[in-house]
C-alpha cells in the first residue's frame, strides 16, 4: 500500500546555519549544509513543514538511525537523500522521502533515474533551475512529487519550475515567492505542519538564530 503523505508546501525556505529571513506563512523549511547542533536548534521551534537534506548535515550519518532520530526526536518526517536504499528505509519509518538527483547532463539524469525506487519516493532535482529546461519526456520520468532544489532565486524561475511540474521549490532568496499569492495556487494546507498557529511559527526562536554575528 502506498502511504498518503500531505502535499509539499509550494515553497521551502533554504536554511543553513541560520534563518535567512522569517519564512512566509505557507513556506516550509529545508535544513541543509549545517551541523547537527544547528539543525536541532533551528528545527526546535519551527512549527511548520520541515525537511532535511540528510546527506548534508555535518555530524549526521546517512543511515536508518539518523532517520529515526529526525522523525522521533525532531519530528521531521520529510527527508532528502541521494541514497535510494535510504529512501526506502524512510518509507518504512513513515517518513516522506525524496531522492536527490544531480541533474548535470542527460546521461547523468538517465543513470540517476535508473536507480530511483519510484513511487512513493519523490524527487529532489538539483539544480532546481534545470527542471524548466528539461524535455517534456524527461520531466515525465521524474517520480512525483518533484522538488526544484538549488539555485532558485528569481520569481520567473519559481514560476517556470511550477509550470514545469514542480510541487515545490527551494529558495534562499530574500523575497517570499509565495508572498504575492502566486505560489499558493493549488496549495494544500498543513503539509506536515507541526505547530499550532500559522504565522506564529518562529516566534519562539532565539533572535541570535536569525542574525548570527
Amino acid at each position: 500500500m502506498i502511504p498518503a503523505w500531505p502535499a509539499l508546501p509550494r515553497v521551502f525556505l533554504s536554511v543553513r546555519d541560520h534563518l535567512p529571513r522569517p519564512p512566509g506563512q505557507d513556506e516550509g523549511l529545508l535544513f541543509h549544509d549545517l551541523s547537527l547542533t544547528e539543525l536541532i536548534h533551528l528545527s526546535a521551534n519551527a512549527e511548520r513543514a520541515a525537511a532535511v537534506d540528510v546527506d548534508s548535515v555535518e555530524g549526521l550519518a546517512s543511515d536508518s538511525a539518523a532517520l529515526t532520530f529526525l522523525a522521533e526526536r525532531l519530528g521531521i518526517r520529510m527527508v532528502i537523500t541521494r541514497r535510494p536504499a535510504l529512501t526506502l528505509r524512510a518509507v518504512e519509518l513513515g517518513c516522506q522521502p525524496l531522492l536527490r538527483i544531480h541533474c548535470l547532463d542527460s546521461t547523468g539524469l538517465e543513470r540517476a533515474l535508473d536507480g530511483h525506487p519510484g513511487t512513493p519516493v519523490g524527487t529532489a532535482l538539483s539544480p532546481g533551475l534545470i527542471l524548466a529546461h528539461l524535455a517534456e519526456q524527461q520531466r515525465r520520468m521524474l517520480p512525483p512529487p518533484v522538488l526544484a532544489y538549488g539555485l532558485m532565486r528569481r520569481d520567473e524561475e519559481f514560476d517556470a519550475a511550477w509550470t514545469a511540474g514542480a510541487a515545490s521549490v527551494v529558495t534562499s532568496a530574500a523575497g517570499d515567492p509565495a508572498g504575492s499569492g502566486r505560489g499558493r495556487r493549488n496549495h494544500r494546507a498543513d503539509p506536515g505542519r507541526r505547530g499550532s498557529k500559522p504565522g506564529h511559527a518562529l516566534d519562539k526562536l532565539d533572535e541570535r538564530l536569525y542574525n548570527p554575528a
Partner: peptide
C-alpha cells in the same frame, strides 16, 4: 564546475 546549488557554485 558543477552548479547544483549556491554552495556548490
Amino acid at each position: 564546475v558543477l552548479c547544483l546549488s549556491e554552495l556548490s557554485v
